[in-house]
Simulated scan of single mutants.
Amino acid sequence: MQSVGKPTGSLDPKRHLWVLGLLAPASALLPSQLVTHTGLAFFWWIGPIIVLIVIPTLDRLIGDDGTNPRDEDYERLSNDRYYRWCTYLFLPIQLIGLIIASAMWAGDDLSLADKFGLAATLGFVSGIGINAAHELGHRVEHLERWLAKVALAQSGYGHFFVEHNRGHHVRVATPEDPASARLGESLWEFLPRSVIGGFRSAVALERERLGRLGKRWFDPRNHILQAWAMTLALFATLTLLFGPQVLPWLLLQAVIGAALLETVNYVEHYGLLRERRANGLYRRCSARDSWNSDRLVTNVFLFHLQRHSDHHANPGRRYQTLRSSAQAPQLPAGYATMIVLAAIPPLWRSVMDKRVLAHYEGDITKANVLPRKRRRLLAVRRAVA
């Protein structure tokens, strides 16, 4: 099990590391320069290389964070605008990278394989951009909520703004939540269920909100339509500037970005189930209901997303104030490693199923089990007992 963070005497020992989170969108600016100077075409794939190879390696070498902010520092950290600018700057870098990539997709200098590599790199940036939108979208400040929609424009996943805040956070770690993976459910089963279920939920939630305001669906205050309009404007502008040949690549990188987000969703709550009260309602979300990882490198790149247990228990906390909890179930590695495992279902289940059972002290009835596998898994449990 990973170590749980301890209070540190420093206000934030990671303060100057948070700017490294901007290396994610900056990776879209690097491929052409690296290929030009080295002659190595694999640098078009630098996004997947960084996320799937470099970060897991550094996670293993550097290890856990091991520190938590002190209670007395909470207000100062929350109000320090330096941390906000680390997320704000993500957006212009992300946009510049997309413009440069569109110009290269429109040209004839790259091979088809190179264009696919560049699309994969932009897709990984797009997926990490959804994480920046995730941080901004939880804030009450009007500007940051609008910036969250801007960050979602590249991925075309604007409904996430509604579903994550008003759907996922309400239903997390229950069978009713499409973004909470079930014990025995593979990533490839989960993806369509989460994508379709999240979309339907977002539309229903926004329609309900507008109805309470006495507004119809096609109202300027519709959050989903606002976000989708930003995507439409962005893609239309790039198509007008560089030609219709860029549109397939824009769509491909958006799909990759959304798939990366949903894979992270799969990792974050796999098999976990909130307890019910005597009246049948679910208990308030606690640190026990999300998988946690305190790997330092991935946490810096993802603005503490891996301290997910505290995020769900205290969704109002800004990323720099999130803590590791002794109650939280711990992943054996950082997200960058876990998404690789998730892509290989037998390997994933060999690593994670036993951890789900250990979290519930061997009682599989306390887990969020895939319905069609429940009877077989319960039979195995009884046989073992």
Rank of each mutant, 00 (worst) to 15 (best):
N222Y: 13
H223G: 01
I224D: 09
L225D: 01
L225R: 08
Q226T: 11
Q226R: 12
A227K: 02
A227C: 03
A227W: 09
A227N: 07
A227I: 07
W228K: 12
W228S: 10
M230V: 09
T231N: 15
T231Y: 06
T231L: 09
L232A: 15
A233K: 06
A233R: 03
L234Y: 07
L234W: 12
A236F: 13
T237R: 02
L238A: 08
L238R: 00
T239L: 09
L240K: 11
L240Y: 14
L241C: 15
L241F: 14
F242H: 06
F242E: 00
F242C: 10
G243P: 12
G243L: 11
P244Y: 11
Q245N: 14
V246T: 12
V246R: 08
L247S: 08
L247T: 13
P248C: 04
W249G: 02
W249F: 12
L250G: 10
L250V: 08
L251C: 13
L251E: 08
Q253E: 13
V255T: 09
V255W: 03
V255D: 09
I256V: 14
G257D: 07
A258D: 04
A258W: 05
A259L: 06
L260P: 02
L260G: 02
L261M: 10
L261R: 02
E262V: 01
E262Y: 03
